[in-house]
Design a protein around this nucleic acid. Structure first.
Lengths: 216, 216
DNA sequence: CACCGTACTATACACTGTACGTTAGAGAGA
DNA sequence: TCTCTCTAACGTACAGTGTATAGTACGGTG
């Protein structure tokens, strides 16, 4: 019955196919049966290579993290930090499924360690002590995660006409007496949910704070 | 056949029951059939009050946001900002399902507008212009969202013994030659994934940055 | 009392992840 | 070359999920 020949599958092939599906339909709409069908294979064939769905998620996340470029050298440390944060954001924008992947099961995996190593190395070289380096790393990482997740989420909302219409309506129906600031700043708020400038604004605030405290 | 009497259900009752289930079993393990069963009712009964599952999610999020306290008055604006951010974090910690709820479909709803109004009002009163207020609002909000999501996620990881063991192993098996900073700072990193101090560290960086830039 | 809108029910469908037991094909040893 | 074994892929099945559709009986209104 046209059984697929023996060694057509591999962990790597499955990961690439899964990633394709996640990018096409969103990481939540992704299903094991979907990737199995795409590969022309029964759903259970995947369990030869991955213990379960989460295991596959881990592998895909690891694969994506491996795409991050190394930290640039020969520039001041704030520029290095900026570069690391920006390239993580860029990767998330290119692969929106990373939001769910990083939100779900955060820092396991070899490639995640590589990224952490880069940022921590920069901070230590800049003179941060162990505790400050760790705290700063966590702060920067969570800032990038939070702001970029938000950005991607809002972009997705905008793409769905029905959801977007409902959001507009609910904002426009707010009483200007009850919510003066929200109503007044609605255009600015719409403009600041995402974009390079918004990201850099927050990032620069953090860097400014770091330079203040490291100078004292 | 013991049909349930006519008006035992209500949107509010359903929301409260759904919230209970989400807190007990996690927001992802929550199901419409579960809350229907809890109420002793067929699954389709819920569709009288909510158009679909997302609609119920929206209602629960709105309910939780209504629990946030108002902005304190009579203190300097940085303290007001701190208070708003801290109480949002606190609410998320008390109701971990808020992570998914806020991550999923962010800023629709009356109560979300109320929270935004509070923070925007503080910033405008502190002299921020429209654009700076909007940018700062987004930055602060996404910081709180990102850092607290991370904190909750890591706490959940720690609670699952199997996942936690695998994480420890994967960290301890990292080569100290390849990842010197990660290996050296492993204890600090473990200590800084969460907690009031970590949260305030990042928040104070942002506030310091704000005060620097507002002084120029 | 009759009636009608609607709150709830029943059934069904197309999905999901994955546990279990089976089969066939590729590579190794004789 | 033949066979034996190991395992990759299969089929079946189960307990779930959200929700479309159609039906039923009850409470409030005429």
């Amino acid at each position: 019955m046209a059984r697929t020949p023996r060694n057509t599958l591999s962990a790597d092939l499955i990961v690439r196919t899964a990633l394709e599906l996640m990018e096409a339909k969103g990481a939540d709409a992704f299903s094991l049966r979907g990737v199995a069908a795409e590969l022309g294979v029964g759903p259970m064939a995947l369990y030869t290579y991955f213990r379960n769905k989460d295991d596959l998620y881990d592998a895909v996340r690891n694969h994506l993290m491996s795409l991050l470029p190394p930290v640039p050298t020969g520039v001041p440390w704030p520029d290095q930090v900026r570069a690391v944060c920006r390239s993580l954001r860029l990767l998330m924008l290119q692969h929106p499924c990373l939001v769910q992947l990083l939100g779900g099961r955060p820092l396991s995996g070899h490639e995640t360690a590589r990224v952490a190593e880069g940022l921590l190395g920069v901070l230590r070289a800049a003179g941060f002590d162990a505790e400050a380096a760790a705290r700063t790393h966590t702060t920067l990482f969570t800032y990038v995660l939070g702001s970029t997740s938000w950005e991607i989420q809002m972009a997705a909302e905008r793409r769905d006409p029905e959801a977007w219409r409902r959001l507009r309506v609910s904002i426009e129906s707010l009483s200007a007496r009850e919510f003066p600031a929200v109503v007044e700043l609605a255009p600015e708020l719409a403009r600041t949910t995402g974009g390079d400038e918004q990201f850099d604004y927050g990032l620069d605030l953090l860097l400014a704070g770091l330079q203040v405290s490291s100078r004292s």
